[in-house]
Design a protein around this nucleic acid. Structure first.
Lengths: 147, 147
DNA sequence: GCCTATTACTTCGGATACAAAGCAAATAGG
DNA sequence: CCTATTTGCTTTGTATCCGAAGTAATAGGC
């Protein structure tokens, strides 16, 4: 029977506000460098590890819904960063791969994010960072649980 | 000279994915109860503590830009949750206050979020939660710092 | 070989966000 | 008192996101 922890009441709002602000900062950070949005950056990173994967896998891997990925990939295709390919084995599905331009940009983005992430944890110990990562993994699981 | 911590590379992406999923879970959670979005819920909570504040204060308090708040408040005004008032002292600015319906809904939302937040930290100790809150406060500050 | 269910992706509508530009009111400087 | 700057909010355009509905292709049951 834990007694009330008043700060808990606003946990999600702190989280939401922190996300809004970090996302904006990340967008600004990237736009002055590799010049890509964080949503698109996430795609570049993921595809680097899973090139030519299906759209659904990409959605799963980046935590988005298929409908969000459709638009995202369409915009990136227009910018010549990725390409869609129809599948012979299953003509419903399409795979996505990085273009040469996409691969080059991915390298920049990787470096940008290394710097950006380093900045985020300034003033925190390794074990504190571990705790944060634990929350970022556990939280969504807990959130989804029924009731 | 800390050695490389490979997990750091993906910190922001973990954070972003966690936010996407928690926000969706929160939206689902709320929609089956008080029936309001998390963005609007944040406004209700904030106004409960700062009723009749200026739009800019609301933007500041919820971590959004003025232009985002304009649309948000317009939608809420249409639903009769809040009201805009012109200011006599400074006719540029407008204040926002909760309607009766807004106050009632806020009570529901407060209860919903108490449950939701409790759920998020399931399996974490008090000190771990403190560490998470530290990150949620420090992170945005660090992110904004120049260079 | 059909009929139905499932799966993969797209489309559409609505909410939310920012940035940049616009407008009106207050303030500062001369 | 008049102009220039600042401030507060809104408008506009683009990027995201989701959920629900639509389309096409595969898979399963008979």
């Amino acid at each position: 029977m834990a007694i009330a922890r008043p700060v808990d009441r606003r946990l999600f709002f702190f989280f939401d506000r922190a996300h809004t602000q970090m996302a904006k900062a990340a967008d600004n950070f990237l736009s002055t460098r590799s010049g890509v949005s964080t949503a698109q950056a996430a795609v570049l990173i993921y595809l680097g590890y899973n090139d030519n994967c299906r759209l659904s896998d990409l959605a799963e891997g980046t935590g988005r819904k298929n409908s969000a990925v459709t638009g995202l990939i369409s915009r990136m295709e227009k910018d010549d960063l990725v390409q869609r390919h129809g599948q012979l084995t299953d003509r419903r599905s399409k795979s996505v791969s990085l273009t040469g331009k996409g691969w080059a940009l991915r390298d920049d983005v990787m470096n940008d994010f290394r710097d950006f992430n380093d900045r985020l944890i300034k003033g925190m110990s390794d074990s504190e960072v571990e705790t944060v990562l634990k929350f970022l993994t556990l939280g969504p699981e807990n959130a989804k649980s029924a009731s």
